[in-house]
């Protein structure tokens, strides 16, 4: 399988990919200031797509992540981790698996932390075949109180503890080599 890794940091524009047969496509996106934009992927046969997407939603907007699966034996995974503050954001992740296709596996996992404003997740599965394994998850919450308390018992202020948890939430989708390219949080490490 041919492997292609696309790493994108900030100012990410709309993306569209036709994934070839026997191709593995991994898209890592970190956006420190998300606005409205779209990702579209189309898969045919024997392909593998993983989209790891994390960042801050600071402005009102809509993010659309669309996937179309037209053939057999494909994998599609979208992992989204977003932190929303002072805005109204909608994240729609839609996977359409066409009729007559078989042995496809799709998973949508959307997680959000809400600081202020509203966050609306729409994990949609349009499945037109019975021969598919599909799952979707959506979680929106606040910073875990137990983790905040633990960090504070080490003498870390609430403000710094939130910074630490923020970074871990955003970065834990990514491999170390991609994280090194991200400037967010670097001043904390120095």
């Amino acid at each position: 399988m041919d492997k292609k890794v696309i790493n994108l940091i900030d100012n990410v524009k709309d993306l569209m990919y036709d994934v070839k047969d026997n191709e593995m496509l991994i898209i890592n996106i970190f956006n420190s200031n998300m606005t409205s934009f779209a990702i579209n992927t189309k898969q045919y046969n024997n392909s593998y797509v993983v989209i790891n997407f994390a960042g801050f939603i600071n402005k009102d907007g809509n993010i659309n992540i669309e996937s179309l699966i037209e053939g057999d034996n494909n994998h599609y995974i979208i992992n989204f981790h977003g932190i929303a503050s002072s805005c109204h954001g909608t994240i729609k992740a839609n996977v359409h698996v066409k009729p007559g296709t078989k042995n496809n596996e799709v998973k949508e996992d959307l997680k959000g932390i809400l600081e202020e404003g509203t966050l609306n997740f729409m994990p949609i599965l349009e499945i037109d075949t019975s021969e598919v394994k599909a799952e979707h998850y959506a979680t929106i919450g606040h910073y875990p109180l137990e983790e905040l308390f633990y960090l504070q018992t080490k003498g870390i202020s609430k403000e710094e503890a939130i910074k630490i948890l923020k970074k871990s939430f955003l970065f834990n989708l990514f491999a170390e080599d991609f994280i090194k390219q991200i400037s967010y949080g670097k001043e904390q490490d120095e």
Binding site: E147, Y150, L151, K154, I156, I164, L165, S168, F169, N172
Partner: peptide, 11 residues
């Protein structure tokens, strides 16, 4: 507790 993505070094 365990905290994913936060190292002992960082804390």
């Amino acid at each position: 507790i365990s905290i994913e993505g936060v190292t002992n070094m960082e804390v």
